[in-house]
Write a protein that binds this DNA or RNA. Structure first.
Lengths: 213, 213
DNA sequence: GATATAATTTTTAGTGACTAAACTTTCTTA
DNA sequence: TAAGAAAGTTTAGTCACTAAAAATTATATC
């Protein structure tokens, strides 16, 4: 009891809440589950859940965060065994993210996650999503640096900037994929690949003398 | 009365609701205004507002839609008087969007707009935002085609695809700008410009014969 | 021009997320 | 072990949103 029973209890409660929330969300769907019912099953009051997580959507966000451990594992596996072409690697990055998302939650629920992450821009609970983003950019940076090191990418390019751009490009395509019920994983893949094609294409003018660059 | 009094009434009501909502949101802030109070001032029941617009956020979305007429005007002005460098034009495109957004609503409120637009992925009310997106892509496409026509961009490039990519890149930067209270317009501009720099940079490996351009 | 009917709005009653504040329980520490 | 601090719970309330019954009101028909 010297080592902070209070902290331990807090952790236990938090775990209990998340555990109940996970199974209920999965079985009954996010909308159908009430905070009150989670509180009842976790044997505490609803207000306690609000004190811990702020909002219902935040509870969901916390669960997503846990699942991201697995996502990052999968992405690391990719960086450990990179394809020959950089474009393929980046496209694969996007595919892994989408596929992971779809095996974990329905699009409808993902929309709640994204909406919540936006609304929380400034709140005390709003750090979760940003952290994940940062971790993913790190993976993308690693990937880009690999190709630059092996000479598949010009050295003058700022790898970090390119990684950031590529990551955000993938991000918006993910948003659009989640937002559109009619877009399947394959179509999203196509679209992202088109972006990559454009980004990596040579865009310099083709009229011969236009050539100071 | 032969020509549809009912339709006329519906339009009148809709206008009245939007008018009241606009001024109240502007004066008191989105959160502080209740649907009930809008209904009272517009002299109809709250349920009618729900029948017309579905949700409070949708009401806001509808107002944003109206403001977009002005946005598109400004963007057209840009396409009518393009700078020499394509990158400058695209960066300007982003600047106009951000500036327009900031003169119209606070970031906090914009977050509500974005969150709502995501949540509405499939609903009957969910068309608004998509329409705007489409209109903006058209403007961007015009812009890209101009530069391609004047020879500042390789002809082999698919202008539509490039426009789409550039637009979505701007879109995600706009999202991130809105999501972060600490990011001002100048910083957002810098970040987007960095993206553009990366997108338009020559990325071909530097090892061998790189004189062919 | 009165009237049935079809469209639309309002009323009513309720659910559920969320909040503030008073109150109670429980851990800690002296 | 008792005072004090740090939770958690209760209570009372606001507000967005919904379904369904009840009341209006435009329209078409005779």
């Amino acid at each position: 009891m010297r080592v902070g029973l209070r902290k331990q209890q807090k952790l236990d409660r938090s775990k209990r809440i998340l555990e109940v929330a996970r199974t209920r969300f999965q079985n009954e769907g996010y909308d159908a589950v009430t905070i009150e019912s989670i509180a009842a099953e976790a044997e505490l009051s609803a207000v306690t859940i609000y004190n811990y997580f702020g909002t219902k959507a935040n509870l969901l966000l916390e669960l997503v965060k846990e699942s991201d451990v697995r996502l990052i594992e999968q992405l690391r596996a990719l960086t450990d065994d990179l394809p020959d072409e950089m474009i393929d690697a980046v496209a694969q990055f996007g595919r892994i993210m989408r596929h992971h998302a779809m095996t974990y939650l329905a699009k409808r629920t993902w929309r709640e996650v994204l909406a919540a992450s936006i609304l929380q821009g400034g709140t005390q609970f709003g750090t979760t999503y940003r952290e994940l983003d940062a971790a993913l950019v790190v993976v993308m940076t690693k990937l880009v640096l690999s190709y630059q090191r092996r000479g598949a990418l010009c050295r003058k390019i700022d790898a970090r900037a390119l990684a950031d751009t590529l990551y955000e490009m993938q991000n918006i395509r993910f948003f659009l994929f989640i937002s559109d019920d009619n877009q399947d994983e394959d179509e999203a893949d196509m679209r992202f690949r088109r972006d990559l094609g454009v980004i990596f294409a040579d865009k310099t003018p083709d009229t011969t003398l236009r050539g100071i660059r």
